[in-house]
């Protein structure tokens, strides 16, 4: 019996390498759709951050937009007030979102699932209202524009066709994804899965469950903040909806459609969701919402053993996540 047989192997698989090469090829194959492609990557990164919380640690959140929006506003406000250097803006946004996640984690992680749902939702709504009221800083309902994002590395300007934006986004998303991948394959990642499977047993083998959850919530918050900042910098606009309930709900849906618990689900789900949305909304936005709702209802009803059960099977079959005998 070989040791590697049943442990998740951290090596890059061929399918993963092909996936990332494909995202690079998008730049050449769909030069006129780079704006949408950037959105997909950004939303995908946002979904990956939720995957750490939901897919790995098993915490259902209805307010993940709180951290995304924080990142977006921090990057936007910095760029509007003369700090237009993108990389440091990204860094500051990630820090701010991590701080929000860290502080709110002590509220959000208490209690049971229903309380958690309500508290995460409540926190994101609080931030939404705060952004709405702080119009001087955020532009309120009109949104935040007139951002001056400087050239990347002082060399590459953000062009109207979104070429720089796409490559910048791709590079950042890839690096953050690698970090998430590292987390997942580390002992810490295994302990998160332990918590998802049985918090009670984790406590019984000596794990400080609450502390682990605070750490992953903060990490995921930083990632979500970076995603938000990318959106702000590449679109040069931040609207209130970055903090809205729909953003959190849509995110949950994307992650579930793509599959939670194997990291790539977030990216795949975001791609499916946004491409379908852009195609179907052109027909009629109302229809899109209806079919989306129907799709989720059917997925939940038909998935054997619920969403969680279906995901375990899918990820096992793809061989990308844990390998199962």
């Amino acid at each position: 019996m070989s040791v590697a047989f049943s442990l998740p192997d951290a090596r890059w698989r061929a399918a993963e390498i092909a996936f990332w090469i494909a995202t690079g090829l998008v730049f050449f194959v769909f030069p006129s759709h780079l704006v949408l492609a950037s959105q997909v990557l950004i939303t995908g990164l946002f979904a990956v951050s939720l995957d750490l919380v939901l897919g790995y640690a098993g915490i259902v959140s209805l307010g993940h937009a709180a951290m995304f929006g924080t990142g977006a506003y921090v990057a936007g406000i910095l760029a509007r007030n003369g700090w237009g250097e993108p990389l440091s803006g990204l860094f500051a946004a990630g820090l701010a979102a991590a701080a929000v996640a860290f502080v709110t984690s002590f509220l959000a992680l208490r209690g049971e699932d229903l309380t958690r749902l309500m508290v995460t939702l409540g926190i994101s709504l609080l931030l939404y209202e705060a952004a709405n009221q702080a119009g001087v800083w955020t532009g309120g309902v009109d949104g935040l524009s007139d951002m001056q994002v400087r050239d990347l590395f002082g060399v590459f300007p953000f062009d109207i066709r979104g070429r720089t934006a796409y490559l910048y986004t791709l590079a950042v998303v890839f690096l953050v994804f690698c970090a998430a991948r590292r987390v997942v394959h580390s002992p810490f990642g295994l302990s998160l899965r332990g918590i998802r499977e049985s918090p009670r047993r984790m406590a019984a083998i000596g794990s400080p469950v609450q502390r682990r959850l605070v750490v992953v919530y903060t990490l995921a918050g930083a990632m979500a903040g970076i995603a938000g900042a990318l959106l702000a910098q590449t679109t040069q606009f931040v609207g209130l909806e970055v903090l809205g309930f729909s953003r959190s709900a849509d995110l949950l849906i994307m992650l579930v459609l793509g599959g939670a618990g194997w990291l790539y689900g977030g990216l795949v789900g975001a791609a499916l969701f946004l491409v379908a949305q852009s195609l179907l909304s052109r027909l009629n936005p109302v229809y899109w919402e209806f079919w989306l709702g129907l799709l989720i209802v059917l997925v939940v009803l038909l998935a054997r053993g619920g969403i969680n059960g279906a995901l375990t099977r899918v990820s096992a079959r793809l061989g990308l996540a844990r390998r199962q005998a």
Binding site: L54, V60, L62, D113, L114, L117, A249, L252, I253, V256, E289, F290, L292, G293, L294, L295, I296, V297, V299, V300, L301, G306, I307, N308
Partner: peptide, 14 residues
């Protein structure tokens, strides 16, 4: 709870 939340969000959208 995840199943229930998703399912009822779907119904709400519809």
């Amino acid at each position: 709870p995840l199943d229930q939340v998703l399912f009822t969000i779907g119904l709400t959208f519809m």
